[in-house]
Design a binder for these strands. Structure first.
Length: 682
DNA sequence: TTACTAATTATTTTT
DNA sequence: TAATTAGTAA
């Protein structure tokens, strides 16, 4: 037990020891958050004697879950069972497997991903943009609104239509026993809400609950957590309000801000000692984030001592910026810095382009993190679709996806006809083709196509026979029967795609090896929840969006595109405080040096536009003369500004309020005093 | 059924 | 710019 505390500081130890009641651990960037959670879990199990099976630790990403699992297993020696430590969604999946029958559904449901969701929606309605409907449905589900609720609440005709699509979408999922990502949480909550006994039993089972990245939770997740700890209130959340950067995705920053209102008797612990960055970096990060009004208030304290000052790169345009960044990186590499200790961060992915060119010219190897994910690749989705059709004959979407892959001369027209006929008979495409007489098919499509379809089904049946249970040979039979590697033959990137397919096959075999008694169903559901992929440790520098960098650290960090319009990014739905938090996240990734770069103009969206240096330089105390802040207000009398609520107005005067500027603005005749950060300049 | 052209429109992303 | 989508011609 002494061992657990050996590596913890005072506040970390205090947080670990506070096992009872609601605990809020405000963990600043680089303050040893993971160490604290993992130690707390080990303490509960090893020192307090809580059975591991009575704890529950939830994260948002598989990656975080994996890391914590590894680190906690290293600390816990004699637990009979490992503690349940997984993502929110995985927890939902496990829970539904055991309890979905209480909703009158079978537990062999299939989890669909975002793509499937969109295809289903598109089929129901193609007038309104699919992504809009998809995000609205997600919003409704996360607010626990049924389609009827949504319909009643809708004022605009469009929204009534969306509510109707939502209703049909739900019907479709139900009929096909499908479950989407939101359902994994929403149905879990619904079950607990509707079954008091189940809720109490579940709460009793998980006596000690911990949540990572609590600032990223949404309203529904909070409600679920309240259910889960209804009998004991032993909930410990770890997070950082200053690193809340997913508001646009529904994360509710108030959950962490007002945690003590949701859970009575909260103990708060602040982890402010930073073990990552040199003091000048922290100074800049602290100065920036201090401009946010809505925050709990926390200051990072440097423990790693002095270091290099934060530097700025000023460039004419993106090309000059690329040259300068490449030169600076070359200098670091020449000095013996390891490439994977260098990262370039940006707010918008397109900004990577010009930098990539610069790095190529300088012959510096780089790796762009993000981009197309493994499981989103067309060739992988094809393989998954094959497996889906084999496990679930009613999956028309997957069927249509693979019907002409490799090319069998079955175009959209033929498939549409078949689909219609199948629907008229109230069955799926697969079953229809299987049971229909050949003559019946010939009446619909060309004879050749009818034969092809029949043969296709026969082949699928044959493969399915091999795959009753997921066996090692399955993928081999699949490949030999359908020659899936031929799909992309002749394309310029065929080789890469085939490599990916091989990797998928290997992944499958690996899964079968690790889960000998498994089924294809289980394999598919596991896949859908996996999107984290290869983090190849390479001998190259990293490039990624600021969002993607959260949780990571690098010796040397370059933040590019520090201009008004990029960071902060302005547009509808943008939130200046969240932009500032993004800046804060970016800055606090750096251990040794931080370089902030801005360009006077950029080629973007097909035209070149002039850009002003980001206000964040000022706010971080990085402008020449930034000590005499008065002179550096971005606003002056006569400027046109826009406010989220009041609209457009003209500045009548500028005054100071604390660290911020207060503007007297004339909004269409009504004069108001507004803090400068709440308006945007036009 | 495919293969081309015109038009449209732009954050961030996990499960 | 560049990527996706809708529409049209062959």
């Amino acid at each position: 037990m002494e061992k657990i505390f050996e590596r913890l500081n005072e506040s970390q130890s205090a947080a670990v020891k506070q096992t009872e009641g609601p605990v809020l651990i405000l963990a600043g960037a680089g303050s040893g958050k993971t160490t604290t959670i993992v130690s707390r879990l080990a303490y509960l199990i090893q020192a307090v004697g809580i059975p591991a099976s009575n704890t529950l630790t939830l994260t948002f990403t598989n990656k975080a879950a994996r890391e914590m699992k590894e680190r906690s297993m290293a600390m816990i020696q004699n637990a009979a069972y490992p503690p349940l430590l997984c993502t929110f969604h995985k927890f939902g999946l496990l829970f539904l497997k055991f309890n979905i029958h209480l909703l009158g559904r079978q537990n062999n449901f299939v989890v669909i991903d975002t793509d499937d969701k969109k295809r289903i929606i598109k089929k129901i309605n193609s007038d309104i943009p699919t992504p809009l409907i998809a995000s609205e449905i997600s919003r409704y589900k996360n607010s626990l609104m049924t389609s009827d609720d949504a319909y009643k609440q809708a004022e605009l005709f469009n929204y009534k239509q969306i509510a109707e699509v939502y209703g049909e979408y739900e019907k479709y999922l139900h009929e096909n026993n499908l479950v989407d990502f939101d359902d994994l949480i929403a149905l879990t909550y619904k079950l607990l809400e509707e079954n008091k006994e189940l809720a109490e039993a579940t709460s009793q089972k998980y006596q000690y609950i911990m949540i990572d990245e609590y600032q990223d939770t949404n309203e529904l997740q909070l409600k679920l957590l309240q259910k889960l700890c209804m009998t004991h209130n032993n909930i410990c959340v770890v997070g950082d309000d200053d690193q809340s950067i997913y508001g646009w995705r529904g994360a509710h920053i108030r959950n962490i801000m007002e945690f003590d209102e949701d859970f009575e008797g909260t103990n708060v612990f602040k982890l402010q000692e930073n073990y990552r960055s040199r003091s000048p970096i922290l100074k800049v990060a602290n100065a920036l984030i201090e401009h946010n009004r809505s925050r709990l208030g926390k200051e990072l304290i440097a423990t790693r001592g002095e270091g290099e000052e934060v530097s700025t790169l000023n460039s004419q345009d993106e090309n000059e910026e690329a040259r300068k960044v490449a030169a600076a990186i070359q200098k670091l590499l020449d000095a013996g810095v390891k490439a994977n200790e260098i990262a370039i961060l940006y707010r918008v992915n397109v900004l990577s382009r010009s930098i990539e060119e610069g790095l190529n010219r300088a012959r510096i190897a780089y790796k762009v993190v993000g981009g197309v994910r493994f499981y989103d690749r067309a060739e992988i989705k094809d393989l998954i679709s094959y497996i889906r059709v084999i496990t679930n004959h009613h999956d028309d979407f997957s069927f249509k996806r693979i019907a002409n892959k490799p090319k069998r001369g079955l175009g959209k027209a033929s498939l549409d006809k078949i689909e219609l006929a199948a629907h008229q008979k109230g069955t799926s495409i697969y079953e229809y083709i299987k049971t229909a007489e050949l003559e019946e098919l010939v009446a619909l499509v060309k004879k050749k196509n009818a034969n092809t379809l029949k043969e296709f089904i026969t082949n699928l049946e044959n493969v399915a026979a091999v795959a009753k249970n997921a066996t090692y040979e399955f993928v081999e039979v699949l490949e030999d029967t359908f020659h899936l590697k031929d799909i992309y033959a002749g394309m310029p990137d065929a080789q890469e795609r085939i490599l990916n397919m091989d990797e998928f096959y290997a992944l499958f075999r690996d899964f079968v090896k690790n889960h000998p008694e498994t089924s294809l169903d289980e394999f598919l559901n596991e896949l859908t929840l996996q999107s984290d992929q290869d983090e190849v440790e390479g001998d190259s520098i990293y490039m990624m969006s600021i969002h993607a960098s959260k949780g990571l650290e690098f010796e040397h960090v370059f933040v590019i595109g520090m201009e008004e319009g990029f960071l902060p990014l302005v547009g509808d739905g943008s939130d200046l405080e969240e932009e500032r938090r993004l800046g804060y996240v970016a800055f606090t990734r750096a251990k040794e040096t931080l370089t902030l770069s801005h360009a006077g103009s950029r080629f973007y969206k097909g035209r070149r536009s002039d850009l002003a240096k980001s206000r964040f330089f000022n706010e971080a105390g990085l402008c020449e003369g930034s000590l005499k802040v008065e002179k550096n207000t971005a606003y002056k009398k006569g400027d046109l500004v826009r406010h989220k609520i009041f609209g457009t107005g003209r500045v009548l005067g500028v005054s100071k309020s604390g660290r911020e500027f207060k503007l007297n603005i004339n909004f269409a005749g009504s004069k108001r005093e507004i803090l400068a950060s709440f308006v945007e300049k036009l």
